[in-house]
Nucleic acid binder design. Structure first.
Lengths: 123, 123
DNA sequence: GAAACTTACCTCGTATTACAACGTATAGTG
DNA sequence: CACTATACGTTGTAATACGAGGTAAGTTTC
């Protein structure tokens, strides 16, 4: 399953369900390692089927930096254009844990809520 | 845990995480029974700790009706002000199942993503 | 029977978000 | 020197949640 825009179905509720979770997704993807912009985008798509547009990632990263949740470091060489690597600050780690905790509870509530709906499928 | 505004913490990421999920929450709450506006709000708070404002519920219900996903029925008597009961249309049931299925996959992805973050707590 | 309260429905303006489209910069390739 | 690929960044648009405020109907209190 892919969580990007689906040309087959013009409905936009899929996009709306993703809304607000991308910030957490990006923070969480930086939990274990430093990544640069496009890399974050690819990792999320590969590991979690979460498809982000470039026009989405960069503004979020700017926001996170302005809030002091991530720090950046330019790395030249290696390949083509220099890359800007992002890593979590201590405040970023605290925020990530807080969001993950909250998200975990939220996920439980939603699961409970949609259980009867999905139960239909088991028949 | 409560999923409403938290006066203790002015941050708004909690609200953002809820964004987009309220439509599904409302549809799912109508899966087994007809409910009226304020009742939906109370059920969600009681059963899933999801706190919605009135100014949130009514616009969503209007939208759902405009999209043909729910139908309404006025019921007078019983108590005070007449109540407008909402119930799922066939299209509404189909949409609810589609959203629940998608949400289920999304939940799995997020859980996988935040697992390393929450693992910290187990120590 | 008038005022106060309760329940219920609804609307408008604001803040926030995701993203498509577009633009810029660096370096390698034919 | 075009052409391509990689990478970063910005702007305008559409959609959402909700606080604040409003209307309406019935019940209770004095």
């Amino acid at each position: 399953m892919v969580f990007g825009p689906d040309p087959e179905r013009p409905d936009n509720w899929e996009r709306q369900l993703k809304k607000g979770w991308l910030e957490l997704a990006i923070l969480a993807s930086l939990w274990d390692e430093e990544l640069y912009g496009l890399d974050i985008l690819r990792r999320l798509e590969k590991d979690t089927d979460l498809v982000l547009a470039e026009g989405t990632v960069y503004p979020i990263l700017s926001r996170l930096k302005a809030d002091g949740l991530v720090s950046t470091k330019w790395v030249e060489g290696e390949a083509g254009h220099p890359r800007k690597y992002y890593s979590l600050t201590p405040a970023g780690r605290r925020r990530t844990v807080a969001m993950a905790r909250y998200a975990s509870g939220f996920l439980g509530s939603i699961r409970k809520l949609i259980a009867p709906v999905l139960a239909k499928e088991d028949k």
